[in-house]
Amino acid sequence: MLEIKNLQVAVEGNLILKGVDLHVKPGEVHAIMGPNGSGKSTLARALSGHPQYEVTGGEARFEGRDLLDMDPDERAREGVFMAFQYPVEIAGVNNGYFLKAALNAKRKHFGQPELDAMEFMQLIREKAKVLQIDQSMLSRSVNEGFSGGEKKRNEIFQMALLEPKLAILDETDSGLDIDALRVVSDGVNGMRNPGRAFVVVTHYQRLLDYIVPDYVHVLSAGRIVKSGGKELAHELEKKGYGWLEAGTQPVGA
């Protein structure tokens, strides 16, 4: 589904990712871990096409197509979703209206009829129930005045609605208390299926107790320095990142 080869990404002229390889197959959950500044979020944002993240080398293919050649909105409509670390507030724009616009943009892309307000409300009610989303959140402005937990839940809610093929979670656990973490994880786990893949970026092992990954990769100084199964996360929790960082040769995925 996602094939990344030797990906190099710069932010404001500074090379952050220095050659990352990653292969994600449908149905898999990959966790990207690493210390602060290792380039985890850069990877997530570069894959979703954030304009400040400049790809300077390497390639990324999504379902065989050149992902880097697509505009951010085209990537989204094709099924790449990123749950933001810091979801953006848009004043005055009704959350439900925003979701409908996003969903219909995607439906239109695939030649499906757009949902009208009634159909949309029905769909949204079902999804909201699963994620324990309060209906009132839909009539508020996008993320405006939301608590940290509400924002993250809103991200997962959008993901549930847009049903992406590839979901990238950018430090979704940061700022969540244990209850919110459980709700968010349940939402993600409920969406796991053989056709969908997840790339979960996180600093802490804690999230991976709830969203159990198939593979764990450790990023350090812009490279993947170690890859393994879910047990690698536990090892990291015990030992920290230090033993992987200093002078370790990249292992590659």
Partner: peptide
């Protein structure tokens, strides 16, 4: 903000 526009685009909306 560029961030607002990017957020919308990441949800599939054109700029």
């Amino acid at each position: 903000g560029e961030d607002q526009i990017f957020y919308c685009r990441q949800r599939g909306l054109t700029s």
